[in-house]
Amino acid sequence: MSAEMSSPTTAVEAAAAAAADPASAEAVQVARDLTFVEPRVGVAKPDAVLVVDGVQRRFGGMTAVDVDHLEVQRGAITALIGPNGAGKTTLFNLLTGFDTPNQGSWTFDGRSLAGRSGAAVARAGMVRTFQLTKALSRLTVLQNMLLATPRHPGERLGLSWLPFLWRAREREATEKALEILARFKLDAKKDDFAGALSGGQRKLLEMARALMTDPTVIMLDEPMAGVNPALVQSLLGHVQALRDEGMTVVFVEHDMHAVRHISDWVVVMAEGRIVAEGPPGTVMQDQAVVDAYLGAHHDTDLGDDALLDPAVLARLEAEATGRQSAPETDHQEEQR
């Protein structure tokens, strides 16, 4: 079970690797910024774009998300990982205004976003994609892109029937859309219905569409899920390219492989809480993470004795209480 965790990549090595990569200087800068950040839950980042405080979401008796403090570094790729049912997508929904927390606050670029609608969050510059792609299948690829144009006068009912008022903006947006589509190699498909695209292409389209809004932070919910393995590499390349352009990327993933190569920082969630964070190499070495991660994983080999070892459990518990002053509550195994 530890085969994938075995290569001991330190943060410094990661930074060096990034430097060796012919990536932009900015990316290296980010990696360096994070190098000296202590891999500890709730740690402050040098330049946090998103700060989450005490966000809780309960469904009935079950606490789906309970995050004390989390900061997301500007201009970095932050991966949010954890087993199924860890609350990653729920946290995503909360932060992007698609769900309302029972309590908690969070700021984006210094402004509070708590209580804002999904649309308002997107307009503020934090744009998300969905786990199950939401390509608008009966619109063409180009229409999908144009739909994302921000502040389009033609989208106001009062002006919409007077085309001469918005034609210039439309032309401008079309140019930009074609440019982005070309980058994602979707330009040949611009007049196809989005429903006719393959799963991977839809993911790309969704990402491209999000770019149309000129976001500060782009939140990708499982961008690799359901994508043909051959496409995964190019998808990861696109994610990195976003960072290199200065965007902040946060993405949810439950597959650790994909995460370690591209992310600058990894946040691990389990049972609604953040159990660890740090550079990919460090985090994945963390025995607590491995245990917590796999302990709740639905496809864990339940025959693993380590999980039943009272000593391990005791240590886990001690670590949990040490990290978070609140006592550990009973979590129900109601996940499906």
């Binding site: 469904f59 009935g60 008796g61 079950m62 789906a64 199924n84 049912g85 729920t90 109601e334 996940q335 499906r336």
Partner: peptide
């Protein structure tokens, strides 16, 4: 993901 419980 999680079974809701009727709270009423």
């Amino acid at each position: 993901m999680t079974a809701d419980r009727p709270t009423c």
